[in-house]
Design a protein around this nucleic acid. Structure first.
Length: 543
RNA sequence: GGGCCGGUAGCUCAGCACGGAAGAGCGGGGGGCUCUUAACCCCUAGGUCGCGGGUUCAAAUCCCGCCCGGCCCGCCA
């Protein structure tokens, strides 16, 4: 069975053939986001990943494609509780209620405004999740491409009204209503003013605002009503495809009405589309919550990018059917990465499974233009997470490679691509350990005081070995403090033990004294990272 | 009132569009690795496939009804 992206591509091409005169190129894909708050990772699902994968599929079929992302920056800032609380001074924040998003100041003062502040954690890393996305704002569109369609909408206001009123039986708009929300120049709020007169030649609107101010402002600073706005954007950008969140998908909902307006008012077939399900957060305590921008629930693409590879997220989104809920938690990055690696091995035929074709395609669409030539060496994420904790900071890539060879996990020389991939993964793992790793995956040396306490138990494991341990201490005092010498010394000691059980107990005792638990990373490399004196005084506790 | 998604092993889920002896990963348990990792390798899950009907030689898979959970829309953008 073909991947759903390919099915979508075929359907889109059919739709374009039957609803547009011919398939005009480039094919325009658009997505839309209102920057009402936290720009979470869920918004990468439909508006970014889906579109970019679709784009890739269409390009494979020989079409030119352009991918847009429209930011709804002209929308009203509603001042929901979490939005207000984003400010240090909530009472002051209330005065921005009704402002356009673009006019609300940055609550933290580090960017030009609210939009730029919250866009940063999404837009700043967007390239890594999908290349060549043309990001535009409605604020900009109202100054250029949208003007023509704003005029049409106003000229055909009565027709617009009749269509929209079909969808709002309870509160129909009155006659002489215009689909325009002007911005008051005095109080700064949008959509609070009654329109008195529109001058399309000057492109201005006279209004009387709720605040009492009567004035005239440029239509550019206001906006169209939502449904007509959506269809106007389609017309202005020439959109052929746009996915939409499930909130728009209800029959008779905003997508349906916008489609009708597109045909009736702008004489243009609406874009093809598909609804998509929202994404939720999965917390380590297993509670779940749907991600929400203005509710500030979720985490951002930047947060993902710090601890995980972007293609891993793309792989998730491309594996799960688009109408199914997905819950994501950053604590599960190792698992997600494993799944991605699995897909990669399937793709390169290193492993077999059922439904191979779909897995292969999901992988291909996840990596797109960054596909390696052949199946690269991959270090499992959880192993990487442990490894980064026991190698030194500087030169960590070389050290990691040496360690991996030593333990037999890496058996060949890495090429440049593989080195790069490994380096990336180690870096992600390092951050992941810092922020999200559960305690039992953290390796940390306990204090000497704790060591003394725990030694009482540890010593029971090696109670008849004090002679050998003394010998070890002697060796440790005299050898050069380096990996090989440490390893040699330990081998010499354990060689005198009677059985495996004794060796195991010996190591358990060591782990207890250093880590406070009876297991841990390979001991010798760990010891090289510690001070000789510290190692010796702790081992002495076992005598 | 309308719409979507889910209910399969302790957990996360795959399998259902083309019905044919209940699956994977993780966790848990056991073992291996001339040296010790939660790396890597091997073994181990006996679960009313939400419930009830129907179709069929055969249903987790198709049809009908119901129950439970999560979510969206009901005229904001």
């Amino acid at each position: 069975m073909p991947h759903w992206i390919d099915e979508l591509a075929e359907k889109l091409l059919q739709y374009l053939e039957s609803h547009f005169d011919k398939i005009s190129e480039p094919i325009i894909l658009n997505g839309g986001l209102s920057v009402s708050g936290l720009q979470h990772v869920g918004r990468l699902r439909g508006e970014i990943t889906l579109n970019s994968a679709l784009r890739y599929a269409l390009e494979e079929r020989g079409y030119k494609v352009k991918q847009f992302l429209t930011l709804y920056t002209q929308d009203e800032w509603k001042g929901k509780k979490p939005q207000i609380e984003a400010f240090d001074n909530p009472s002051e924040a209330r005065k921005y209620i009704g402002f356009r998003l673009i006019d609300v100041p940055d609550p933290k003062g580090c960017h030009k405004n609210w939009v730029e502040h919250f866009w940063d954690d999404f837009g700043g890393v967007l390239d890594h999740f999908a290349p060549d996305v043309n990001v535009i704002t409605t604020t900009q569109l109202y100054k250029d491409k949208l003007k023509k369609y704003v005029k049409i909408a106003i000229q055909r206001a009565d027709h617009v009204r009749k269509i929209i009123n079909k969808y709002r039986k309870r509160k129909p708009f009155p006659e002489n209503w215009l689909p325009l929300l002007p911005r008051c120049e005095k109080c700064g709020r949008i959509g609070k003013a009654k329109i008195l007169e529109v001058n399309l030649d000057k492109y201005t609107v006279k209004y009387r605002c709720e605040c009492g101010f009567e004035g005239e402002s440029s239509i550019e600073t206001g906006k169209l009503n939502w449904r007509i706005e959506w269809s106007a954007i389609w017309a202005a950008l020439g959109v052929h495809f746009e996915p939409y969140g499930k909130d728009h998908a209800t029959p008779g909902g905003s997508r349906d009405s916008a489609s009708e307006l597109s045909i009736e008012i702008f004489g243009r077939a609406p874009p093809f589309g598909t609804p998509y399900e929202w994404v939720g957060v999965l917390n380590p305590d297993r509670t779940k919550k749907v991600m929400g921008s203005s509710d500030f629930v979720g985490f951002t693409p930047r947060q993902w990018y710090e601890v995980a590879e972007p293609e891993v997220l793309r792989y998730i989104y491309l594996t799960v059917p688009i109408m199914k809920q997905v819950f994501l938690g950053l604590h599960k990055v190792p698992e997600y990465t494993n799944n991605f690696d699995f897909g990669e091995r399937i793709y390169f035929g290193e492993e077999s499974a059922e439904d191979v074709e779909e897995i292969k395609r999901a992988y291909e669409l996840a990596v797109m233009y960054n596909k390696p030539q052949s199946c690269p060496f991959r270090l499992s994420f959880s192993h990487a997470a442990l490894l980064v904790q026991v190698i030194s900071e500087e030169n960590f890539l070389e050290e990691a490679i040496a360690r991996l060879k030593e333990t037999g996990i890496l058996k060949k020389e890495l090429d440049l691509t593989e080195r790069k991939l490994l380096e990336t993964r180690l870096n992600k793992a390092k951050n992941w350990v810092k922020y999200y790793a559960p305690d039992n995956m953290r390796i940390s040396i306990i204090s000497f005081e704790e060591s003394i306490k725990i030694a009482k138990d540890a010593i029971l494991l090696v109670k008849d070995k004090s002679k050998q341990i003394k010998m070890l201490v002697d060796k440790f005092t005299s050898i050069p403090w380096a990996l090989d010498a440490i390893k040699e010394s330990m081998k010499e000691i354990t060689a005198t033990f009677d059985d495996n059980k004794a060796i195991k107990d010996f190591f358990r005792a060591l782990y207890l004294v250093f880590l406070g638990k009876s297991f841990g990373p390979r001991m010798a490399p760990l010891l090289t990272l510690l001070q000789r004196e510290d190692v010796i005084r702790r081992i002495k506790l076992l005598i």
